[in-house]
């Protein structure tokens, strides 16, 4: 443990465990899911997907930290990439949809239901 603390990794805190981080991550994911299901504003719905990305990122970094592996952080970089791409596409779509209906309501497109 001594060598770990010296080598840029501060020692794992004695009591806050991986489970704490995973709980925070899961709760944040759940809040994002509730938001995605309940909100009707298209922009907020996409904001909630970003919230879920955040939660996944926390879980990945926490796993990486507790397993002393950099892959978790590497994957957060890719999550960021995908989030940026998704935001660009989604917001372009939202602008397009708003121009057609003058409304951000997801219900305005309910006839698209299969």
């Amino acid at each position: 443990m001594m060598t770990l603390a010296q080598s840029g990794f501060p020692e794992v805190m004695s009591q806050v465990t991986l489970a704490h981080y995973l709980f925070v991550s899961g709760a944040m994911f759940t809040i994002g899911l509730v938001g995605f299901l309940t909100r009707r504003n298209l922009i907020i719905m996409f904001l909630c997907t970003e919230l879920m990305f955040q939660a996944a990122g926390i879980a990945l970094v926490a796993f990486g930290r507790f397993h002393l592996d950099f892959t978790g952080q590497t994957f957060v970089i890719f999550v960021l990439t995908v989030a940026a791409a998704e935001a660009a596409m989604a917001l372009a779509l939202v602008v397009l949809l708003f121009r057609r209906r003058e409304s951000l309501d997801a219900e305005a497109w309910r006839e698209m239901r299969g």
Binding site: L37, T38, R39, R40, S103, E107
Partner: peptide
């Protein structure tokens, strides 16, 4: 806007 102030099926989602 009403779509901002009213949640959609909050109970089932929660």
């Amino acid at each position: 806007a009403p779509y901002d102030t009213n949640a959609r099926e909050p109970f089932i989602a929660c």
